[in-house]
Simulated assay, not measured.
Amino acid sequence: MFKIFNKNDNSKEVAKERLKLVLIHDRAHVSPKFLDMVKGDIIRVISDYMEIDEEGLDVKLTRTKRESDDTPIPALVANIPILKMKDRALK
C-alpha cells in the first residue's frame, strides 16, 4: 500500500514505515511477485464461496509477535472486501 503525502504527513515517519516494510519483506525472503501469486491463489479459492472486490483486495506482509514468547515474526495480512456470498456457500 502506498501512502500519498499531504500537509499533515511527517516525511520522516513515512520513510521509516516504508523502510520497515522493505526490511520485513527482505527478512522473510518474499518478493512482490510472490505476494502477487498468493493474492491470485486467495482470489481463486474464495471466489467459489463469495463475490469479492478484487481491486480492493490488499495483501501485505507485516510483523507481529508470537504469542508464546513475544518473538517478532512475519505475518501475512489480507483485507478482502466481500460484495456478496454465493448461494452454495450458504448451504
Rank of each mutant, 00 (worst) to 15 (best):
F2R: 04
F2L: 03
F2S: 03
K3S: 02
I4N: 06
I4D: 11
I4W: 01
F5G: 01
F5P: 01
N8Y: 14
N10P: 00
S11Y: 02
S11L: 07
V14R: 03
V14Y: 00
V14E: 01
A15F: 03
A15Y: 02
A15W: 02
A15Q: 11
A15T: 05
K16C: 04
K16Y: 06
K16H: 05
E17A: 06
E17W: 03
E17D: 06
R18M: 03
L19H: 07
K20L: 12
K20I: 08
V22R: 14
V22E: 14
V22W: 13
L23W: 02
L23P: 00
L23S: 01
L23K: 10
D26R: 14
D26P: 00
R27I: 03
R27H: 12
H29W: 09
H29R: 12
V30N: 06
V30W: 02
V30H: 07
S31P: 05
S31V: 05
P32L: 12
P32A: 12
K33H: 11
K33Q: 13
K33P: 01
K33S: 11
F34R: 05
F34V: 09
F34N: 07
F34P: 00
L35F: 12
V38P: 02
K39M: 08
K39V: 13
K39I: 11
G40N: 15
D41C: 06
D41H: 15
I42G: 10
R44L: 05
R44Y: 04
I46C: 11
I46N: 12
S47E: 10
S47I: 10
Y49A: 06
Y49E: 09
M50W: 13
M50E: 06
E51H: 07
E51P: 04
D53K: 02
D53Y: 08
E55M: 11
E55F: 14
G56L: 12
D58C: 08
D58N: 15
V59S: 07
V59H: 04
V59T: 13
K60M: 12
K60Q: 13
L61R: 07
L61W: 06
L61T: 06
T62Y: 10
T62C: 13
R63E: 15
R63A: 15
T64M: 07
K65I: 11
K65R: 14
E67G: 01
E67L: 11
S68C: 05
S68D: 12
D69T: 10
D69W: 13
D70K: 15
D70Y: 07
T71M: 09
T71Q: 13
P72C: 09
P74N: 04
P74M: 04
A75R: 15
L76Y: 10
L76E: 04
L76I: 14
V77T: 10
A78R: 00
A78Q: 03
N79Q: 11
N79T: 09
N79M: 13
I82G: 05
M85N: 03
M85S: 08
K86S: 03
A89H: 01
L90H: 00
L90P: 01
L90I: 09
K91P: 00
K91W: 03
